[in-house]
Design a binder for these strands. Structure first.
Lengths: 215, 215
DNA sequence: TAAATAATGTTGCAATTGCAACATGTTAAT
DNA sequence: ATTAACATGTTGCAATTGCAACATTATTTA
């Protein structure tokens, strides 16, 4: 349902990609692939795998600007910021499709399959906007403690459970929240001591009852 | 070009809106309009005016989650987070169109005008993703100083000038950057004293040369 | 135009944070 | 199977930040 080629046959798929002059690439795990795609007005669709868009600032801080799983998009990402500080890194073997946004906008064919393609793209973009808004909501918290709680609560709500599994390492979580890893640990310890959370490896249990933190 | 009805006649426009069961609303300045639109799976398109999506947390902190000018979209915003803490506030008289996202996805008509509408929507969503990514980049900075510099540099690059004009008050800027207003002022003062910026009302001049802050 | 409301500006202080400098535990590569 | 590389965990300390409590200046609105 959130697939770029949902409801589109393989033949139609090939035709669409050809018409849009799209290119498919396969990358191995742990490769930096920026140079291949550093262009404006492109949409990259991650068909399978796992990518991170990383920013390294002049202090050597790594920031996860974006975290991309199956059928997420990127690329428009870079258009307004350009800059050599950014890189796209594969965390797993990944397959991506690069499409020129202008081609999508300009293309004039009215076949049903193309309509379907555009709708799928709309869906994916809508999901992207949601994910970004969640990230913004989390980053808007002023303290590390509130960033953590905000993150846990959102993940918990998504899972419809008070148990959640970190999708990556604590080191990466600190980068995602844009806080110092060791300070984050200090705060995790506080939350544990206060009984608000329990941590067992990547499994986190949230113990927020009808406290006003929760909603 | 970034208009939802770019290249669509008024007649066609009415037809599309009717088919999508879209509703148009006009709101006066400084109204909270959340209740009217608090639904999942809707897209709100701000046709004209100025909106802010605000989050008030339990500490009474106001956070500007989103800042919407002409032809920006919202609504998908709320879907994953629901919550009564959010509100949409008009900062100017505003005209918005509410469309059910599912109707767009399901609609099956292949008229040229509908294709154009979808492409316009894609364009608007793409812009939204870019704006969100910029916001995330700014919020990813760990210090107030770097948030400010990051914001100024991005605005300056957008303007293609080292002079930029704040689109809102300093109070709102602090909310946008998610920092305490008075601490932000302290930092603005530092930046002025170091000669990195000049401030005259809402006009800010950036004096970053080939320093590694700039790129 | 006066009064009310909101924005700007300043400062001390306590709380939070980032950073350095570690120790230990876990995973991956030769 | 051992090393190398990476993730987790801890702590002291200096820097940054939020907050409170103000004064002053703009901007609305009655």
């Amino acid at each position: 349902m959130n697939d770029l080629f949902y409801n589109i046959s393989d033949d139609e798929k090939e035709k669409i990609l050809r018409n849009l002059e799209a290119n498919t690439f396969n990358f191995q795990k742990n490769k930096t692939i920026l140079s291949s795609v550093k262009q404006e007005n492109i949409i990259g669709v991650l068909v399978s795998g796992y990518l991170q868009i990383i920013k390294n600032d002049y202090n050597g801080n790594k920031v996860i600007i974006d975290d991309l799983y199956d059928n997420s998009i990127f690329g428009t990402t870079m258009s307004s910021i350009s800059s050599s500080e950014y890189s796209i890194v594969t965390k797993e073997d990944s397959k991506i499709i690069i499409i020129y946004f202008d081609e999508i906008i300009k293309a004039n064919f009215v076949e049903q399959s193309y309509m379907q393609f555009i709708k799928n793209l709309l869906n994916i973009m809508s999901n992207k906007i949601n994910a970004n808004n969640v990230r913004i909501e989390i980053l808007s918290n002023k303290t590390t403690r509130n960033k953590l709680l905000s993150y846990f609560k959102i993940m918990s709500k998504k899972n419809k459970s008070n148990i959640l599994y970190l999708p990556y390492t604590f080191t990466d979580l600190a980068d995602y929240l844009s806080v110092d890893r060791t300070s984050m640990h200090r705060e995790l310890k506080n939350l544990k001591e206060e009984g608000l959370i329990e941590i067992k490896n990547k499994r986190i249990t949230l113990n927020l009852y009808d406290d006003n933190d929760f909603e």
